[in-house]
């Protein structure tokens, strides 16, 4: 346990520093029991764990969507648990969040989904600049021709890409991904993972990726941490954890669908 590797990050300055994070829902339902996570600038951190282990709650605490019970969350050198709404919004503008089901605004077209945050926070932009930013955002995710479609007309993978384009439109320094490949077929999942990597390289963002998909974890993660019983159970690179002696850790890496044996009669 506790196997750590030196991550191949640009610098080793922690941009996210979570210490002793506690959160419970109701009296007997403690989800997080002292989580400690550090993410360095430019690093891609993958958070693994069973369903209900508190992975999503952790990243929701990081943007103030869920109030913490106890602990510190320091992002960009600011303690965010102590901020009021206005100050928190200043931090939120520098963080992107890709929701599990993309959370596209149903009543708006793809263009309006992207315009909505952009126009509110970049009021000095001219119409041409807004148009250019949206076209560029959609081209980055390979869906420039979906600009006038409604979210209901899009497939799961397309919604995820548009969600990603919307997340990135404000050029965040940190991007939080809540299960980016859940519910997608293996090919689309891989495409989304590769897209995350390409965008990370292009924009030089820091990422926290929550996933069950080990292929996604392998492709995107510089470092992996595993949550168990409300605390970080272990951490390390994909290779180190994949070769772990710990049975529980190993069970994450065993393929759920082994190749079929050929039988001859």
């Amino acid at each position: 346990m506790g196997t750590t590797t030196k991550s191949n990050t640009e610098t080793d300055t922690p941009i996210i520093n979570i210490k002793g994070l506690y959160k419970s829902f109701g009296k007997d339902n403690a989800i997080l029991k002292g989580v400690n996570i550090t993410v360095n600038k430019g690093e891609n951190l993958v958070v693994l764990g069973k369903s209900g282990s508190g992975k999503s709650v952790t990243i929701k605490c990081m943007v103030g969507l869920v109030a913490t019970d106890n602990g510190q969350i320091n992002i960009f050198g600011t303690e965010i648990t102590q901020l009021d709404e206005k100050e928190l919004n200043q931090i939120r503008l520098r963080i992107g969040f890709l929701f599990q089901n993309s959370a596209l605004y149903d009543s708006m077209s793809v263009r309006q989904n992207l315009v909505f945050p952009l126009k509110r926070h970049s009021k000095n932009l001219t119409e041409e600049e807004v148009d250019k930013a949206i076209k560029e955002g959609l081209e980055n995710v390979g869906l420039a021709d979906a600009i006038d479609k409604m979210p209901s007309e899009l497939s799961g993978g397309m919604r995820k890409r548009i969600g990603l384009a919307r997340t990135l439109i404000l050029k965040p320094e940190i991007v939080l991904y809540d299960e980016p490949t859940t519910g997608l077929d293996p090919i689309t999942s891989r495409e989304i993972s590769e897209l995350i990597m390409a965008i990370q390289k292009k924009n030089k963002t820091t990422s926290v990726i929550i996933t069950h998909d080990m292929e996604c974890a392998r492709l995107t993660g510089d470092r992996l941490v595993i949550l168990k019983d409300g605390v970080i159970y272990t951490e390390g690179s994909y290779e180190v954890l994949a070769n772990s002696e710990d049975e529980w850790v190993k069970s994450f890496f065993v393929s759920s669908c082994p190749p079929a044996n050929k039988t001859t009669q």
Partner: peptide, 16 residues
């Protein structure tokens, strides 16, 4: 339905 599909959360994290 906006609440259930996290659209309200999405608005909040975009500082709206």
């Amino acid at each position: 339905s906006m609440k259930v599909t996290e659209q309200i959360d999405a608005m909040e994290v975009s500082a709206i």
